[in-house]
Amino acid sequence: MVQIKTPEQIAKMREAGLVVAAIHAATREAAVPGATTKDLDEVARKVIADHGATSNFLGYGGFPATICTSVNEVVVHGIPDTETVLKDGDIISIDAGAVIDGWHGDAAYTAFVGTGHAPELVELSRVTEESMWAGIAAMKVNNRLVDISKAIESYIRRQPRPATGKYGIIEDYGGHGIGTEMHMDPHLLNYVSRKRGKGIKLVPGVCLAIEPMVSLGTARTKVLADEWTVLTTDGTWSSHWEHSIALTEQGPLVLTAPDCGREKLAQYGVEAAPDPLK
C-alpha cells in the first residue's frame, strides 16, 4: 500500500526535510582532512537536537549511528567510527534523516574532502546528482514510477564514459516511499527493469526518496561482516545523492532542499511547488 499524504502532512515532512538540509550543511563544513567519520556523526546529532527532532537512522534495524558515512569505495550504509580519518582527496557520501512529529525526512549528498580531486571523481558526483534531478523532474502527476527510473538511467547512459570504461548503476539498492516511516512502498529502481513493470501511477500526495548510487565500475556490491557497510565488488569509488520529494497539485516539492528544488528543477523546465511553510 502506498501512503498518500495530505497537504498538512506534507508540511510536516517539509519541517523534517529542513532539519536534514541543516545536517547536510553542517556535516559538509565539517568534512575536512583529519576529521573522523565519528566527528561528523556528532555534528549531525547536535543539529538534530538543536531542532527538536529525532533521528530515524539511530537504532534503525540496529544501526548504531545518526548518519551513514560512506567513504570512497563504500556505496552506502557506512558506519561512523573513530578509526576512519578523512584524507585529502577522499570523497564521502553522507546520508542523513530526521523525524518531526512522526514524519520523516531522508537525503544524501557526496562531498569532496580537501582539494585536488581527480576529474573523473568530480564528474562521477555530477552525473549522479544530475541523474537524481532528472528523476525528480519526471515526478509528475499521471506519470508512472518507471518514468522516474527511466529518467535516471537515461541521464547516466547519455554521459561520456569515464576513463574506467563505464558507470555502474548500483542494482541492489534504490529509492523508496517515505512518510510515517523512513522506508515504505514503493521501491524505486534507478534503472528500468522489464520484470518490475511500470509501477504505480503518480498522484498528488505520493512522497518518494529518489536516490541514485553510481560507481566508476561495477553495478554489483557486497556487504561487510558488520552487516551494514556496502562496497563495490571491484573496489571502484562511488557517489550517492538523494532527496525526499512530495508530489503536489502544483508539481514536485523537494522537501529536503532549502529552496524546494526550484533552481535545479528550472533547468529541466519544471516548476517546483511552493514551500508550504511560507
Score class of each variant (00 low, 15 high):
Val2Trp: 04
Ile4Phe: 15
Thr6Asn: 11
Glu8Met: 14
Glu8Asp: 15
Gln9Gly: 14
Met13Gln: 15
Arg14Thr: 13
Leu18Gly: 00
Leu18Val: 01
Val20Lys: 09
Ala25Tyr: 09
Ala26Thr: 05
Thr27Arg: 02
Arg28Thr: 08
Ala30Glu: 03
Ala31Asn: 13
Pro33Asn: 08
Pro33Ser: 10
Pro33Lys: 10
Gly34Pro: 06
Leu40His: 02
Asp41Leu: 01
Val43Thr: 03
Val43Ile: 00
Arg45Cys: 00
Val47Gly: 03
Ile48Asn: 06
Ile48Pro: 02
Asp50His: 00
His51Leu: 10
His51Phe: 07
Thr54His: 02
Phe57Pro: 01
Phe57Cys: 02
Gly61Met: 07
Ser70Ile: 01
Val71Tyr: 00
Asn72Trp: 00
Val76Asn: 06
Val76Phe: 03
Ile79Cys: 01
Pro80Lys: 01
Thr82Trp: 08
Thr82Glu: 10
Thr82Tyr: 05
Glu83Leu: 07
Glu83Ile: 02
Thr84Arg: 15
Leu86Gln: 07
Lys87Met: 12
Gly89Cys: 02
Asp90Gly: 14
Asp90Ala: 13
Ile92Val: 14
Ile92Gln: 07
Ile94Val: 08
Asp95His: 00
Trp103Arg: 05
Trp103Gly: 01
His104Ala: 14
Asp106Glu: 08
Tyr109Arg: 15
Ala111Cys: 07
Gly114Pro: 05
Gly116Leu: 07
Gly116Lys: 08
Pro119Asn: 04
Leu121Tyr: 09
Glu123Cys: 05
Glu129Asp: 10
Glu129Ser: 14
Glu130Met: 10
Ser131Thr: 02
Trp133Tyr: 12
Ala138Pro: 07
Met139Gly: 04
Lys140Pro: 01
Val141Leu: 07
Val141Glu: 10
Asn142Glu: 03
Asn143Ala: 01
Ile148Met: 06
Ser149Ala: 14
Glu153Lys: 11
Ser154Cys: 02
Arg157Tyr: 08
Arg158Leu: 06
Pro160Cys: 00
Arg161Leu: 03
Gly165Glu: 01
Tyr167Gly: 04
Ile170Gln: 04
Ile170Trp: 04
Asp172Phe: 10
Gly177Phe: 06
Met182Trp: 08
His183Ala: 15
His183Leu: 15
Met184His: 12
Pro186Lys: 11
Asn190Arg: 07
Tyr191Ser: 15
Lys198Asp: 12
Ile200Val: 08
Lys201Ala: 13
Val203Leu: 12
Pro204Gly: 05
Pro204Ser: 09
Gly205Trp: 13
Gly205Asn: 12
Cys207Lys: 09
Cys207Ala: 15
Leu208Arg: 15
Ile210Cys: 10
Leu216Pro: 03
Leu216Tyr: 11
Arg220Gln: 04
Ala225Glu: 07
Glu227Val: 04
Thr229Arg: 09
Val230Lys: 01
Leu231Glu: 00
Asp234Met: 09
Gly235Val: 05
Ser239Asp: 08
Ser239Val: 03
Ser244Phe: 14
Glu249Cys: 04
Gly251Tyr: 08
Thr256Asn: 02
Thr256Cys: 03
Ala257Asp: 15
Leu265Ser: 14
Ala266Arg: 12
Ala266Ile: 09
Tyr268Ala: 14
Leu277Cys: 01
